[in-house]
């Protein structure tokens, strides 16, 4: 019969219309921006720099190794190394970025900088509402605008951040152990000499 298919289709739309009042399955729209869907943990938008502690400048994990700058596909990262050094999270003196710019208008959120960073210093943010009326300067983020605390990182990517923290703690413990071992070795080296000296001094007596 002509029109049967149409009626069948209309039945389907009627089912969906009626269903949208009772079933969450059929009503999937949300009234953004008043309502928001929670973002999944892995969600990524643009990179940020992680810092430990309260002072963003002192706590930046980045050591300006420039690997991310080289690996970035659209070349949106610009880094200038510092002339002096400051201690990093294990206490080793390291170079820090005197300048660290990311041009968000060029960045394509590919996460390659995060993958290649050996210092867990750059991570992906999930903030995507970054509209600005300044076309050039407004989307060029310097290191102050990029810096986010480790707590913030924990807030947006809890599982990943916990893993990173565990790894860093392990590294730190290793480094401390090594430092201790080095100190102990140095002490051990010094000790026989120290022990020998009084002995030498003791002989003539």
């Amino acid at each position: 019969m002509l029109g049967e298919g149409l009626l069948k289709g209309l039945g389907e739309t009627a089912r969906n219309f009626a269903g949208s009042f009772v079933s969450k399955e059929r009503l999937t729209t949300v009234q953004y921006p008043e309502e928001r869907e929670p973002l999944p943990e892995a969600s990524r938008a643009f990179p940020f720099l992680v810092y430990d502690g309260a002072d963003w400048e002192a706590g930046l994990r980045c050591v300006a190794c420039q690997i991310c700058e080289k690996e970035c596909p659209p070349k949106c990262i610009y880094i200038e190394k510092s002339k002096d050094k400051k201690p990093d999270y294990v206490g080793k003196p390291q170079i820090y970025p005197a300048k660290f710019d990311i041009d968000i208008s060029v960045c394509m959120s590919c996460q390659i900088c995060v993958e290649v960073c050996p210092f867990e210093a750059i991570k992906m943010d999930n903030q995507f509402e970054l509209a600005t009326d300044d076309r050039f300067g407004g989307l060029l983020y310097d290191r102050k605008e990029l810096a986010r605390s480790n707590e913030y990182y924990h807030k947006i990517h809890p599982t990943e951040a916990a893993e990173v923290d565990a790894r860093l703690a392990e590294e730190k413990a290793k480094a401390e152990e090594k430092a201790k071992a080095v100190a102990a070795a140095a002490a051990a080296k010094a000790a026989p000499a120290m022990a020998a000296k009084p002995a030498e001094g003791a002989q003539p007596q």
Binding site: L2, G3, E4, G5, L6, K8, G9, G11, E12, T13, R15, N16
Partner: peptide, 14 residues
């Protein structure tokens, strides 16, 4: 199935 109900035998689509 729903999609096919809606479209496959629809006279206008045909």
């Amino acid at each position: 199935d729903e999609f096919e109900n809606l479209l496959t035998s629809n006279e206008i689509l045909m």
